[in-house]
Design a protein around this nucleic acid. Structure first.
Lengths: 235, 235
DNA sequence: CGCTAATTTGACCTTAGTCAAATTCTGTGG
DNA sequence: CCACAGAATTTGACTAAGGTCAAATTAGCG
């Protein structure tokens, strides 16, 4: 029991997305040959808007922001990806240039799988393709909810809800939920919920005064998730 | 040339989505056995929120609104589906209850394909599965753009852009673009762009005064798409 | 023709964006 | 360890966008 990793785990080290668990031993070996793993500093761009992707990226450690530039050049952050996320596959499979930019928010460990490898796995392994299809459809559901949220909810409600989502994103395994620190610039936070930085700050202050959150520099801790949930679901 | 339909076309009559063109003759025959086709009146609900779907729906003729109820009970219309759209597959493949309601906006012809049939096609035909995966990924791209639009653009810009999208939705083949009539209630139009009915009316009036659109009762015609495009892309 | 529902208009008010200035943080070099 | 430049955050004052409510008008339909 001292060595609890089996051979197939080793073959996909650095690839935490569960879809890859469906690969055969040979296929895992193939991925292992083709993949490259890198440690990247904060602020590194994995790929940009309009880029044609040369492969997909697996987040092994760290956070990556996925954003799109609006007409006025303002970033709209679509997602904060964390460990086990698979990035770039939508773009590659839609056979279109990327609609988003992926940029590291911290030091990250990222595994790159070249296009040819990824595409050949898809065509050879129907279960793997099915798992990605399921993943894509689930994300469609999430984005559908997001649209309703952006279109109908006021900023205060969106911020409350987003803080709860981010609590999940920044939570480490087995960690006490009350100690999760959300570590984002105010501007990034504003660009997630789609509002001005100043407005975000004012509402955060209000939440702090009501003892729903705690603020230490840029780090935010959730104190009263129950009350935040009520605010998020209002109206 | 008097009969220009070949046998495989006949086998998938009532199923206009191009993904089904990838099926073998046998598979098309199978679908043909399992499918049912119905004509439905305006206002008929194909499936509702939280429903577990018994199959997928192909729009053969007519328009279907796909919406989600917000916390305050207000409809958020996610899409106006037209002929050749495939509805319900996201929900079925995500293996979750539906997040949306699908309701006919006019008299529609709809083909229903039972769950077992659809799922067995997916597992037996990798090309078909791949085509759906591509479709799902493309829709993810569209929703990503939508989020940026809802989060950052003011109502006037969103309305201008949405009128152009709806022009495409309501255009009949080979029709002169200047004669396309968008036929939606003011409330539905407001629920697409995520605003109040009154605000929608006021901005429509402004567009009419500027001779960008024409209004005949509930029917809207685009007169100056070029100018609307400029408004939509502003800021 | 009359009834109901949809559309339109007006007045008012809340929300949230903008701009400018002040303050606090942060990392870097001495 | 400290000072400091540059960046990020915070605050205040003002403005504009768009929501709400109520009432009036129009349209559609049996």
């Amino acid at each position: 029991m001292s060595k609890n990793s089996n051979s197939s785990d080793q073959l996909t080290a650095g690839i935490k997305n569960p879809c890859f668990g469906l690969l055969s031993t040979d296929e895992k070996e193939y991925v292992n040959q083709a993949k490259t793993e890198k440690t990247l500093k904060s602020g590194h761009e994995l790929f940009g808007e309009d880029a044609t992707l040369k492969g997909v990226y697996c987040v092994n450690k760290g956070k990556v922001k996925i954003y799109k530039l609006g007409n006025d050049g303002k970033e709209q952050i679509i997602d904060i990806a964390k460990e086990s996320a698979l990035l770039g596959f939508r773009t590659m499979l839609a056979e279109n240039p990327s609609k988003v930019t992926a940029e590291t928010l911290e030091e990250c460990s990222i595994t790159f799988i070249p296009r040819e490898c990824f595409m050949s796995l898809l065509s050879s392994n129907s279960k793997f393709q099915g798992a990605l299809l399921k993943l894509a459809c689930q994300e469609l559901g999430v984005l559908t909810d997001s649209i309703t949220n952006y279109a109908q909810q006021p900023v205060r409600e969106r911020l409350a809800g987003m803080l709860l989502v981010l609590m999940g994103t920044y939570k480490k395994e087995e960690q006490d939920p009350d100690t999760v620190e959300i570590n984002l610039s105010r501007e990034d936070l504003a660009n997630i919920i789609g509002t001005a930085t100043e407005t975000t700050i004012r509402i955060l202050r209000e939440f702090k005064k009501k003892e729903l959150i705690n603020i230490k520099g840029r780090k935010i801790t959730i104190l009263n998730s129950h009350e935040l949930m009520k605010i998020a679901d209002t109206q």
